[in-house]
Design a protein around this nucleic acid. Sequence first.
RNA 1: GGCCCCGUCGUCUAGAGGCCCAGGACGCCGCCCUCUCAAGGCGGUAGCGCCGGUUCGAAUCCGGUCGGGGCUACCA
Length: 499
Amino acid sequence: MTEPVRTRFAPSPTGDLHVGNVRSALYNWAYARHNGGAFVLRIEDTDAARSTEESTRGVVEQMSWLGLDWDEGPGIGGPYAPYVQTGRLELYRDVVALLRDAGYAYDSYSTDDEVKARRAVRGDKTQGYDNYDRELTDAQVGAFRAEGRTPVVRFRMPDEPIVFEDMVRGEVRFEPGNVPDYVLARADGSPLYPLTNPVDDAVMGITHVLRGEDLLPSTPRQIPLHAALRSLGVASGPMPRFGHLPMVLGEGRRRISKRNTPEASLLQVRAEGFLAEGILNYLALLGWSPGGDQELFTLDEMVAAFRVEKINRNPATFDVKKLTAINGVKIRSLEPGEFVKRLLPFLVRRGLLTSPVSDAQLELVAAAAPLVQERSATLVEAADLLGFLLVPDHHFAIDPAAGAKVLTPATAPVLDASLAVLTDVASWTAEDVQEVLQSALVDGLGLKPRVAYGPVRVALTGRTVSPPLFESIELLGRDRTLDRLRAARAGLGAAPGMG
RNA sequence: GGCCCCGUCGUCUAGAGGCCCAGGACGCCGCCCUCUCAAGGCGGUAGCGCCGGUUCGAAUCCGGUCGGGGCUACCA
């Protein structure tokens, strides 16, 4: 009962992680942390065709970025190293030999077509392997070999029901005959997932496995395999407990794909400026809840509250809108300095800052950051809002739609009046700027505030939406402010765009 | 087709027989605040798939039905 908990996240390094993977990682990580256990990261790269060393590094990088730290695995090693399956090939080969010698597994020569043909003859519509090669005679084997066939190795499924207590679903039962003998190793001897995954779980002493529901049907294959491994002395610990997480669905309740749910890619949401805190908090909610009405929490709070019994059984749809809302909360709760730190790469990426950021630039960003932090749901949004302030002057341009809508010839008096008072304003502070503009435009010209400030905003920021105007003017500085007002004034009547 | 899983607002969920003619959040719609946009405040919209049964009483238990999803590879 008090065995130390050991969980793992075992992705295959194909492409990048998607939200379903990340949630599995998060739950396993949280379960281990909640119980003071160990979290293992293992790379399942036995499919050489789809795995690259680069994507393995990618998995490691993304896990680090998320802040889901592992106690054993790539980069830090551990008592069961290596934690990359291509480094464990001899183990799998030995295990296959052991299984075969003990009669738990056997050579199988049937081709797909032969299986289908047999089923057709029987009028059997069932799909999948038919266990034909279980009791081949020496003569048959000899004949196959004479043909040059090389066999795959299949596990012999026991002839009894397989029943297990799923941590999230309760008792799940598979009757004998519904799970065909499956392939452990290819004809060329290379091991397959149905072998490597349970073997490593057994050898590494994994106690709890939380994984997607898509793997539920593979569980009845793992259980007898684990028992066989134990009888052979390969595994010593108890059978892992399994918990199958509800699927994470994409747009329209369909399986997630790059096409229907591009935001399901971790790389993608990162590029869009979502924070690890936001992604993790949102994903935690997809299939789990602490109970009650709480939805926002830190990682530590989640760990403290995480209990498997609270995991849901029904599939969940990934919703970017809610992710965005939660991310906004996380952005606002960042320390100002931290916010700037996370924002910087996004500003550099869009050419608003030069790569080694100068002190002056840093100071400007730091001064402007609070203005955008409270009105951005993503870092990309924040970077957008800061564009007018950081863009090199010769690249500043007014959005054509905004110009056409707001900078009409009728607004010439507004720009003229603004130029006049801003040229003379004594101290260049948001307060004084507001005071002179208000008296000139609102009091002087008798305009409603929104009508008065609209043209000024577009002239200075190029857009109808911007950080607060007076603070923006202060940060822009007198010279740039006056230049942009003059340019906008000069452009009235003609095409409003510039340089 | 076979096997397995699932079914509360559009979405994520709370709910473990009376506290629920169902609560929260996101979204959406109004209003307030307001130099734009956000944030914030207030209000609104919308749901227990269906049919039986058990029970004094069911979103909660049972059966069926319909619907959705997963697996059915010498991928993982």
